[in-house]
Structure formats: structure tokens, C-alpha cells
Design a protein around this nucleic acid. Structure first.
Lengths: 232, 232
DNA sequence: CTTTAGAATGAACGTATGTTCATTCATTGT
DNA sequence: ACAATGAATGAACATACGTTCATTCTAAAG
């Protein structure tokens, strides 16, 4: 992560070598970082396949191909490794959602649709992410430090949905309860995640998106004029 | 469970003893059954407190107070015990929901409200049930036999909600998509369960019910006349 | 080429796991 | 009161767990 930042500085640093004694160790650091990632990915895979109770050092070693001692060398302990996996997977998810929110325009319902679409897409609803999340969530009662990586009450998510609804209110002169509907929408998204986890084979993404958007558009347009939201 | 059924038959059976040789073993069976329940409850408690990966024979022994060997005597193996806990907790949940559905009248929205109310009540949303469910769900990928006890796609739940909406359609001459809204309602309920699990302390039951019912009533009444559902 | 720093290894260790089974204990039937 | 039945016990066992650390390997510096 931080290694690649100082990577391209190396050729320029010839005059004062004493000031950058670390710059030449780049390749090693990159290698180390590479192994770190291999371990994180392997651990996630083991968690998906064997659940948290089946995630052992031996299985991780087998899946990653690196030696037994590497785990403690990189992460100090297995618990720490699990924590790092949580961090790793959560960042992946966060990055994906941020991209979806940026891509949307400033038409509130369009933005909302983009958010929902992203939430149902295979960048969020996939075996790896859902399985790891469920595993971490089930452990978060006994390991509270895991909670923040798999939370249902993400402020950023809440805010972006809330803003869409508030904007919609102003634009159409209506008065829907933005807080309640935001929570409802977040709840639906959470429900879909659980459903996907338990039925990844039978899960129909389009169908889910359809259901989701039907529900949302009904919640949003209710009471106001019967202006339907089906634009495209 | 089955033991208490034949319990009160014992005094009457004096004429033909040969036909009921089992009737006298009642007290023993009751004792055995009692220990079975103690083990199930203790295991559930350990799962809540330590997660599935922290649920060990030693901890169960400590929590239940019975001897180490009892677990294999009653359940053959630890895996089997976990399965029995799944069965046990799921039955508890199912019984509670059935009661809620029976209590409701035949006014569709009233029935729907009763179902939702039950789903948010402390008989469903409580530490024990949610924690055990989450633990089992996280393991259901590697142990598919657990799925049926913690499924998101419960047919009985689906049907009862669906019927309410269909009845509402007929009653008010509207044409909401019952399938989609049923799935949406189920999704919200699932989302609340996850949220409760991660925030049992901060969770506000009334607030959740409010949110839930606001969302549902908007979904249901949208497009039709602006007949509000706020009756009580 | 030689030296050196730090990454990588994996055998070894102590502990904890799930299971077994010879034994003890309590209840029932005679 | 006395066998007989089967539930309950817990020490003992083999295996698997997470962690350690003396050693080997490798890339950079002199």
C-alpha cells in the first residue's frame, strides 16, 4: 500500500543517499506486501469454504502456499489476521460503493437507483464478500472490534440515501419521512445480502433489483401525485 | 417432549401391564429429556457468548453443569448437538410466529401488522435467537444441512404475508404486485434481524416497528386512493 | 565476490480439542 | 431386600490447534 508510493522516487535519489536509506529496499517491501495480500486472500477463501470455525492456520497455509510461520510474522496472531481480513474486505466494499455514488448524476431517484444497483451487483453480492461478512458478523458479539467492518449502520450509506430522499421531497414538494424510508431501504439491502448468502445459486439479481426498485418507488411516490418512476 | 404425553397414563395402566412395558420408565425418560434440554440451552448460551468458533465441549460442560460424556451420549457428536440446537431454536421461533398469525383477525392489514409486530417483538428479536441464527447462518455454507433451520425463504412466512396483500388487493380493487411486496417485507424483516444482532443495546423496538409499518403502508397504499392505514 | 540485514521456513512445543469406555450411580421390577 | 437396567461420570486418548524460534535463503550494499 504505502510501498508503491515511494516506488518511483528511487531513480531520482542519487545525490543525498543518507536521507533515503529505505528507498532501496523497495523490492523487498513489495515482496512482503505481496505475501501479505496472498495471506489475506487465502484466509478469506478458507473462511468462505469452511466457515469461521473451520478457518485454521493449517488450512490457510495450504490455501496460500506460504509457510506456517508467515502468518505470525505478518500478523502476530491468527486473531489479528482475521481482523486484517475484515479490514481488507470492508475496504473493497467501500471503494465499490463510493464509485457507484460518484457515477450517479444529481437527479435524486437516478442516484438512488445507482446506489441500489451497486448494492445488488456482483461487486457486493458475491460469495466471498457475503460469506466473510456473515462469518465476521456472527463473531462480532464475542469480538466487538470486528463490528465496525461489517456494520449495518454505515453513516456514509445512510447519508447518501437520505440526501436523495430529501432532495426528492424538495423537488416534488412532498413530505416523505426521509429517515424512516432510508432505514427501510437499508434494511431491504441487508435482507438481500442475507438472502444471497444462503441462496447464492438460486439468487436472481435482476429479480431482486426489480423487487427492490418496485418497493422503493412505491414508498417514495405514495400519497403524492401518481407520477410513476419508470423512466428507463 | 414425547415423554410428557404418556406421563399421565401411568396410574390407569394396571390391568394389562404387558402391553405398556415402557410406561414405567417415564421418570427416567423425563430425566434424560431434561438433561437433553439443559444441554441444548447451555450450548445456545455458549454460542451467544463465544460465537460458533468458541463453542467447545469444555465450555458447554461448564455452562450446563453436566459431565463431559453426556454430550456424546445424547447427541453422538458435537456436530449433531449443534444441529439439534438449530432445530430447537427454530421450533421456538416457528411456534411464536404461528401464535401471532392465529391471533390476527381477517382484516388483511391488521393481520399483516400482527405478523410484523411479532417479528419485531422480543420473542423473535432477542440476543439468543439472533446470535444463534447468525452463527448457524455463517456456517450454513460449509454445513448445508443447517440451512433449513435458519432460512430466509420460509414458505409459511411468505404465504401468510402474500395472502394479506392479495386480500387487500381484492378488498380495495387495486393491483399491487403481491410477490414483490412480500419479498420486500421479508427483506426488511431480515434486515432488522441483522441490525438487532449487531446493535442489541441501541436497538429501539418501537422505532423499528414504526419504520417498518410506515414503509409497508406506503408501499401498500401507493397509487390507490389516499386512504391512510393509521387506524390505531 | 563477500558481507549483511531481514524475509521465509518448518520442526518442535504446549495446550485444547472431540471422543471413548470402564466404572459408578440411581431407578425400576421381582 | 436384591438383581437388573440403563443413565451419568470423568480420566485417558489421539489428534489438531496456534505459536515459537533456531535455521536457511535471498537480495542489496560494500
Amino acid at each position: 500500500m504505502t510501498a508503491s508510493v515511494s516506488n518511483n522516487l528511487k531513480p531520482a535519489a542519487t545525490a543525498d543517499q543518507d536521507l533515503q536509506p529505505e528507498a532501496s529496499k523497495v523490492k523487498r517491501i513489495v515482496n512482503k506486501e505481496h505475501h501479505r495480500l496472498v495471506l489475506l486472500e487465502a484466509t478469506a477463501s478458507v473462511m468462505v469454504e469452511h466457515g469461521i470455525s473451520g478457518t485454521t492456520i493449517s488450512k490457510i497455509q495450504e490455501a496460500s502456499g506460504v509457510s506456517r510461520g508467515m502468518i505470525n510474522l505478518h500478523f502476530q496472531s491468527k486473531d489479528n489476521l482475521i481482523l486484517a481480513v475484515a479490514e481488507h474486505v470492508e475496504e473493497e466494499y467501500r471503494r465499490c460503493r463510493r464509485r457507484a455514488m460518484e457515477a450517479a448524476g444529481n437527479e435524486p431517484l437516478k442516484t438512488l437507483q445507482a446506489i441500489i444497483q451497486s448494492e445488488v451487483s456482483d461487486t457486493v453480492l458475491n460469495l466471498r464478500l457475503t460469506a466473510v461478512w456473515m462469518a465476521l458478523r456472527s463473531e462480532s458479539n464475542s469480538r466487538p472490534e470486528l463490528l465496525r467492518f461489517v456494520d449495518t449502520r454505515d453513516r456514509a450509506f445512510y447519508c447518501s440515501v437520505f440526501r436523495c430522499l430529501r432532495k426528492y421531497n424538495k423537488l416534488h414538494g412532498v413530505d416523505i419521512d426521509c429517515r424512516k424510508l432510508t432505514l427501510a431501504i437499508m434494511s431491504i439491502a441487508e435482507g438481500l445480502l442475507t438472502d444471497y448468502h444462503l441462496h447464492s445459486d438460486a439468487f436472481d439479481r435482476e429479480d431482486a433489483l426489480d423487487m427492490c426498485w418496485y418497493a422503493i418507488s412505491r414508498m417514495v411516490v405514495a400519497g403524492s401525485e401518481n407520477s410513476r418512476v419508470e423512466e428507463d
